[in-house]
Structures are given as structure tokens and as C-alpha cells.
Amino acid sequence: MPRVSPGEHYKRYVFLRLAWLDFPKLYAVLSLHEQWQLHEFYQPSKQPTRAELTTHIRNLAVVKPALVHQAGKHARLIQRVFRQISEELDIPRSEWNSVLSTPIRRRNPSPARMDALDGKRYTIAVVARPEVNMKLLIRALIELTATKQES
């Protein structure tokens, strides 16, 4: 398989950055672990310069060579899903977020499914944050502890 050039990596980063900012639901086509791999490699939630990204990728390729292939595979999947949505669906761009759940249900191997009291079936897919938000985690643990103490 041919090596991906720094220019191609940067193009992927730009696409993933825009997807992260405008259509984060696209990331839910990947499992949680796959999303973290993509974030570790391409850093779509950050704004590195082209030179910083190239250096980061070069360093990761030495330390974690398998990540180069894995992250590339994940990026191509997100690009393919985005392309399918934009080509196959005749809907305005402003409505894409509501439609993104369709391919997510088909691809993500581990979405949570539940039947609600109203008889409807709901599917929940995860969009991972690249870093742990400690404030939210602490608040969730405090609320969980308070709920446990009340019961």
C-alpha cells in the first residue's frame, strides 16, 4: 500500500476538523476506541499548523506505526459516509445533522438500543471527546453518589 504524503494527511486533517466543528455526529460511525485513535493521530479538535501536524504524525509513525494505518482507515470511512450523504440525499446542508443517524445505525458496532415507555425504539451512538472533561466527570460522580445515598 502506498505511503500517504504529508499533504494528503493535511487534507484529511482539514476535512476531519471541519467535520468535527460542523457535523460531529459523523464521528459516531466509528466505535469509541476508533474515535480516540483518530483524535490521537489527526487531532481534529485542535488547530495545529501544517508543520506541527506533520511533525506530530511523523513522531507517531515511529512510536505507534499501526496507528498510521488505523487512523487513515477511520478517516476514509468518515469521508465515505459524508460523501454518500451529500451525493445520495437530496436535502439541504442545514438538515444533514438530523439525517446522519441513518448511516450511524448501520455502521457502529456498539450503539446502545432501548425500548422506551412510549413504544418507540431509540438508538444511542457515542461521539467521543478527545480529552476527558474533568469538571463534567467530577460532577457526574457527585450526582451519582448523591443519588445512591438517597436510595
Rank of each mutant, 00 (worst) to 15 (best):
H9Y: 10
P24W: 09
V126P: 01
E8W: 05
R58C: 05
H9N: 10
D90I: 06
G72L: 02
T49R: 08
M114G: 12
I138V: 10
I142L: 09
P44A: 05
D22L: 13
I124T: 07
F82H: 13
V14N: 01
P6H: 03
A61G: 06
Q43L: 08
I124K: 04
T55H: 10
L136A: 14
V99A: 15
I142K: 13
T145R: 13
L53E: 00
L67C: 04
I78G: 02
V63L: 13
L32E: 14
E95I: 07
K120I: 11
L141P: 02
N59S: 11
S151K: 11
R129G: 08
I91V: 15
V81D: 01
V126I: 15
L30H: 03
L137V: 13
D22M: 09
E143I: 08
A112L: 15
R113G: 09
A128Y: 05
K46C: 06
R50Q: 10
Y122N: 05
V127W: 03
P44W: 02
L77R: 04
P6W: 01
D118F: 00
W96E: 03
V127F: 03
G72W: 01
Y27D: 03
K64W: 06
M114H: 11
R80D: 15
N97T: 09
K46F: 04
Q37C: 08
S94E: 15
Q79C: 07
R106K: 13
F23H: 04
W96C: 03
L21D: 08
K64C: 06
R105Y: 08
L67E: 01
R129W: 11
L30N: 02
Y27V: 04
Q37K: 07
V14Q: 03
L38H: 01
L100G: 00
L67N: 03
H33S: 10
E88H: 09
M1F: 07
P48A: 00
L60H: 04
Y27I: 04
Q43S: 07
I91A: 14
K120M: 12
V81R: 00
V62F: 13
Y122K: 04
R139H: 09
R80A: 15
V63M: 10
A51P: 00
E87Q: 15
K11A: 13
A51R: 15
R3E: 09
L137N: 03
E150R: 07
P48M: 01
Y42P: 01
I138M: 06
P44M: 03
P103C: 11
M114R: 12
L16K: 00
R129C: 07
S31R: 07
T49F: 04
D115S: 15
H33F: 13
L144H: 13
R139I: 03
A66Y: 04
V63P: 06
H74Q: 10
F41Q: 01
K73F: 11
I78S: 01
F82C: 11
A19K: 02
L77A: 10
D118H: 03
P109D: 07
M1L: 08
Q37M: 08
V81C: 06
L60C: 05
